[in-house]
Design a protein around this nucleic acid. Sequence first.
RNA 1: GCUCCGUUGGUGUAGUCCGGCCAAUCAUUUCGGCCUUUCGAGCCGAAGACUCGGGUUCGAAUCCCGGACGGAGCACCA
Length: 485
Amino acid sequence: MKEKKPVEEKGFTELPNVDGDVVLRFAPNPSGPLHIGHSRAVILNNEYVKRYGGKLILRVEDTDPRRVDPEAYHMMEEDLKWMGVEWQEKYIQSDRMEIYYEYAEKLIELGQAYMCTCNGADFKTLKDQAKPCPCRETSPEASMKLWKEMPEMDEGEAVLRVKTDITHKNPAIRDWVAMRVVNYEHPRTGNKYKIYPMMNFSVTVDDHLMGVTHVLRGKDHLANSEKQSYMYNHFGWKIPEFIHYGRLKMEDVALSTSKAREGIDNGQYLGWDDPRLGTIRAIARRGIKPEAIKELIMEIGPKISDAVVSWKKIYGLNRQILEETSNRYFLVDNPTRVIIENLPESEQKLVERPLHPDHPERGMRKLMIEPELYLTMEDITKTGENGVIRLMDGINLCFDNGKTIYHSSDLEDAKKAKAMIVQWVPVNDAIEAEIMMPDATLKKGFIEKSASKLLVDDVVQLERIGFARVDEVTYTKIRFYFAHK
RNA sequence: GCUCCGUUGGUGUAGUCCGGCCAAUCAUUUCGGCCUUUCGAGCCGAAGACUCGGGUUCGAAUCCCGGACGGAGCACCA
């Protein structure tokens, strides 16, 4: 038995200022299914909760009705479950509108938020010069009055702003928007609400109310963390630890949800689980195991610099898992049917090969050497007219003028002739098979009979081809999704 | 342009806070060899890095200054 490698912790460093249990949250915007870029936040949060104890909150941030895909709510949960993530509490922000209104009013009363009726461009001009707009002087009473009138307003007529420091050296931080009017039907709440909180506002209220101790978020939120700090201070709330991780980029994969959606809509991609996409469901369908993703993220950790991950890296991690669990089968792709002219009766024998070379206890596969066999076209071509080819655990063949001729049966003969040793499938009981490749091309061929026992989601190693996940099994055909070599 | 942040082999990481034990860790990758009737695994070996320039210091990957490169933000998105 091989020893299982210990889980490398590497970049998975300690969280700062942990005092007992931690409360963490994963807070996605429901705009589509999760992709591998999300896995950094997902895995890190989940693993830190496991390490320190405490709880993980799933919070769906759907406060922009225009950016909500109703399908995403359940797709995201499916993806999280596939990744083995367990959350103890779940909130949906569109259920919490009244809470946000309540805190907006409190902030107005504190004089730390004001209704601003400037148009965006005017405000920006002033802001960029570190000058307050006239609305900043609005009294809490007057702001409150305007706030109450806000549901009657149109988009853009007024916003609620949180006071920060109008001279802050980073213009992005200056007096940010907390609430705005949105005239758009929300997939969950319909037209019940017109005033929606901005992410910075709802996040701050929720993180405080939910007792979040550590906020793990992408470094694109660096400025937001600073914006939010002002609001924490206005309320006298304790600021959680903010940890910003860098972006996770995948080689050759467009991760953006909007681009994927576009491609799906125009028929370029097969769906959210198209093998070319970087979505969690696409990766899952290809037979990548959640443990491989977890190990990847654990190695990268929560550091702020970006990480560029190659598929090879993921394949390597996945292979360590699959190698142990995957049974072996012969599949012949791009098949050519050969008829062996002079196959001796004595050589028409049963060949047995283990399902897994390291685990004989899993049993054997049985294939009959018969005159009619499928071989891969490329193997025949490479062998050529003068070469010898060996059927794995079987016999040696050569080709002459388009004919296939029995050569010998001893392995030594094959070695002497420098024969390729190839997989083969008897025509007699071959099962039709196809493999969906990572570039979404389809390979067709035949697989040996013993594969008929395979079940959907099994991952096997197709000898000399690579690892593949069983995607669909029918009476006449087995479809695989290719994982990697 | 402005504001912030980052930069260790092909890739990912350790080390950077608290300078010396770092001629730099581990993994993956690539290339050899052994083993093996596939691939993979295993074993052995090899390749390959501190962004650059100054400064401080007896001594710098580590501290300071400057440049380069890269990234993020500069929304009534999250």
